[in-house]
Design a protein around this nucleic acid. Structure first.
Lengths: 357, 357
DNA sequence: CTGAAAGCGCTTACAG
DNA sequence: CTGAAAGCGCTTACAG
């Protein structure tokens, strides 16, 4: 009997020895080699069962799948992603999902991506462009294959970075001539103008504004003011409010405005929640809505139509944005559309006047 | 001159050669070795700059950071996670985030996790336990360090799997004696009972129910019916509705109920949206709310308080759930609390009667 | 249809 | 405070 032991012929043993030597972490989970050994195939074949099952013989496929099932093996996508440079991850950076129109977009975006085999990494930026930029770095560390962004007001550095990494990007919920890559949105400027037109047509003489101060709110404000200016109205009382917009904030904003200009006869609010708050305040002050004071919101939240028929609102299709943003990304990822094809979709909006409800 | 070329002594060169040989994917992004070379340190030191900066000399730290900044290097967390067995990922599996109370929970959960250096993988299960189970596998393939689950009604196989992987788990938005690990929620059964009590106290003699058919809705239904049974009311007209619950669905449900039992004087609806729909239907039928028909919702959505003071509702603190779920997970991850400490928090609820608004 | 070898880009566990 | 060696668990790009 030789005293020099030859290396164990079985992989099992070798692996165990090597692992014991390193002692990284505790007992490790199942690896592809465990499944391969049990099924009597090579690890590559197991990999194929997950990633390219058509290329595996039916019997082999079945055998491997049974072992996978029996062992409860779940492939490690950190390893898979590293090796294949395909993370199967999509990042979505949105300001917020609570009390918000964006939640609809994220919902359908996530559903659509999930159906296509991608998972969604959610990052909440809270309306700050610099915050968004630092979140992007965090998110890029996962090597996502695509990114959904909210709005078009990003830092230059974010824009540049994203162009450099070369993954597909969709900007949403806004409009610009110079998107980073693709875009699904609508014009906030046009909304402001349309609301101004609507209010003027309804006889408003002294319109006011309750608005947040983010990029999109500013665009609506600009459209609103410029349209009013065309009609000779230059002085537009404004109440700027900090996010998150809420009923309570709207309730406080209206009296403020009226204190500054008591002849206000119309208010454009940055969201339906603000509009509902303004409506509450108007009622409390004995003002008739809309006869004495017209109020317009933004977002057309489902409940608002039902509960506050006095309010005009602006309807925007967050679901359509989410679905199409996903499609744009998926088409690019599947190679159906080239990287030079900067697709663009304006989903539009509609002003929903009080009478129509 | 020898014709046999020795291996290049510089790493730079070797790397390039090796990479060219493999040609996996196109031109690769920056790696930690690129930063290391430029900064004149080893890759391990660069790694430390990101993961353990205190252990690096101040000058070295500064130098490396400058190179990182200049190059725009973003570490690859697929590689980092694989190597360290720390993915810095937390999975959140929720039924939906649109029109929903869960969006609040996800929002604060995500914010809290993000502040602690974790990212959130969002998975939308849509109220199906089997769907939830298959989503879990997808999600586990990313090797998350913790999982947030909605509700306590999971498949046995999900429960077992999750116990096996041994990562911290928080179940939320419900209550049970046998959680998988930790829990932050409240009792839907108790809510049903409390609403029944409330309606009875207000003089209801013939209460009805509009409810979805998921596990939590069933628990509320059970509490509602059992409390009514104690008061001698065994026959409770019910309308079962499919998710997603909406104003429109509530609007249709009420007439259905009344067609079956025209003497109904109170309705407990599974959500505020349903309640608002029922309110609309009641108005359309000329019924006074609450004097002729009391309506109770669930969720206490912000707008509801303001716009529909006729409705009673049940207030539940989704934000508190999210914050505490995150804390539970983080405490466990930081090692402050052992894996045997199955923490538990009942955040309770409150019935908000119509008068209080 | 299947597999052996090499590599993806990091970090661990030492040692100094 | 810093680094050389080895390994994390997969997949690619062949070859057969």
């Amino acid at each position: 009997m030789s005293t020099i032991k030859p290396p164990a012929p079985r992989d099992d043993h070798t692996d165990a020895t090597v692992r014991a030597k390193r002692t990284r972490g505790g007992p490790k989970g199942l690896r592809i080699t465990d499944v391969a050994a049990q099924a009597g195939v090579s690890p590559i074949t197991v990999s194929r069962v997950f990633n390219n099952p058509e290329s595996v013989a039916p019997e082999t496929l079945e055998r491997v799948r049974q072992v996978v099932q029996k062992l409860g093996y779940v492939p490690n996508r950190l390893a898979g992603g590293l090796s294949s440079a395909r993370s199967r991850l999509i990042a979505a950076i949105v300001p917020t999902i609570s009390h918000s129109l964006f939640s609809e977009t994220v919902q359908v975006f996530s559903e659509t991506m999930s159906r296509a085999g991608y998972e969604v990494l959610l990052a909440l930026s809270g309306y700050s462009a610099s915050n968004e930029e630092s979140l992007l770095d965090t998110v890029l560390s996962r090597r996502p294959e695509g990114v959904l962004l909210t709005g078009v007001a990003h830092t230059d550095s974010l824009r540049e970075r994203l162009r450099n990494v070369g993954i597909p990007v969709v900007e949403t919920w806004d409009m610009t001539d110079a998107p980073i890559d693709m875009l699904v949105g609508f014009s906030h400027y046009e909304i402001g103008a349309a609301v101004a037109t609507h209010l003027l047509e309804r006889g408003a003489r002294r319109p006011a504004l309750v608005s947040a101060n983010d990029a999109r709110a500013r665009a609506r404000r600009a459209g609103f003011r410029e349209r009013l200016a065309q009609a000779g109205i230059e002085d537009v009382p404004e109440a700027l409010v900090a996010p998150p917009s809420s009923v309570a904030v709207g309730k406080r904003a209206l009296p403020e405005l009226l204190a500054r200009a008591q002849d206000i006869d119309a208010v454009f609010c940055g969201s339906d929640l603000l509009a509902i708050g303004a409506l509450g305040a108007a009622r409390a002050m004995g003002l008739q809505v809309p006869s004495q004071l017209a109020i317009c919101g933004f977002g057309d939240l489902e409940f608002a139509t039902e509960t506050t028929p006095q309010l005009t609102t602006v309807r925007v299709d967050g679901t359509r944005i989410g679905v199409n943003a996903a499609r744009f990304l998926l088409d690019r990822l599947s190679g159906e559309h080239g990287a030079d094809e900067h697709r663009f979709l304006d989903v539009g909006f509609s002003v929903v006047p009080r009478e129509s409800t």
